[in-house]
Design a protein around this nucleic acid. Structure first.
Lengths: 64, 64
DNA sequence: ACCTCATGTAAAGGGTGTTTTACATGAGGT
DNA sequence: ACCTCATGTAAAACACCCTTTACATGAGGT
């Protein structure tokens, strides 16, 4: 599962720490998601999409 | 997180076991999702939405 | 009464998502 | 040289997702 979190975050002008705070997760979680270490839970995926005013499919793309 | 899995499955005319097979998960997983015992992983949420030809937001609705 | 099918549930176990604490590196500004 | 900020990473701990195996219930058909 790929994602555009880093790109969206940089467009917004936020650090990983700032994004983490807005999502109520740790900075390490944001870093891990951007680096593709694992996928977020579904509720976190919704929070990310809502924060960036995108649909989930616009932020996350399945490998297949 | 609420979802419309049961409704979509019934419209498709499938049993929980049939849906599970199409999703490559166990029947217990389908049952647990329909009954709201937990949320699916993000990849499974994508598979469900794609199977029913819906957007993720049309299948899953955050509580907030 | 029996059989089958669909559904609900439970327990144990492996794998994944997220946290806290902590340390390391590089870039920029003083 | 120093300080600060942003980023990357690691280990331990905990909760959650999903599996297999198993049993229980109710509805419908014979």
């Amino acid at each position: 599962m790929k994602n555009n979190i880093q790109e969206l975050r940089q467009i917004a002008g936020w650090s990983q720490a700032e994004l983490a705070k807005r999502l109520n997760v740790s900075r390490q979680t944001v870093n891990a998601l951007e680096r593709g270490r694992y996928d977020p839970s579904l509720p976190l995926a919704f929070a990310i999409a809502q924060l960036f005013e995108r649909q989930i499919e616009q932020v996350f793309q399945p490998d297949t």
